[in-house]
Amino acid sequence: MPVAWVLILSSFLFSVGIYGVLARRNAVLVLMSIELMLNAANINFVVFNLLLHSISYIGQVFALFIITIAAAELGVGLAIVILIFRNRSTVSIDEVSLMKW
């Protein structure tokens, strides 16, 4: 199977993630979009691992670590979102901007 197909899929996922980050103003949705980008990287790592026949499985290991870290970060991120909501009852990025420049 041509590896380029997979890579184009991951590029698409990455680009959609970028779109989400730029176009969304809800913090949780931005967060989800970033998860898309992380998954794009993961797919790359795994398919490259297969393509290159890495004996060290570095590609898969990398993907594992990305998943783990992403989970940890999400925990912190949601804690921050909850905190903000408690104080202000909103999770929209635009409305949260007290400070500019």
Binding site: P2, V3, A4, F12, F14, L51
Partner: peptide, 20 residues
């Protein structure tokens, strides 16, 4: 970003296939 990235990866990995 999609255009650039996909073009470049297509060009780079055109002939390569994964073997299961």
């Amino acid at each position: 970003i999609f255009g650039i990235t996909s073009t470049i990866v297509w060009k780079t990995f055109k002939g390569q296939t994964v073997h299961f």
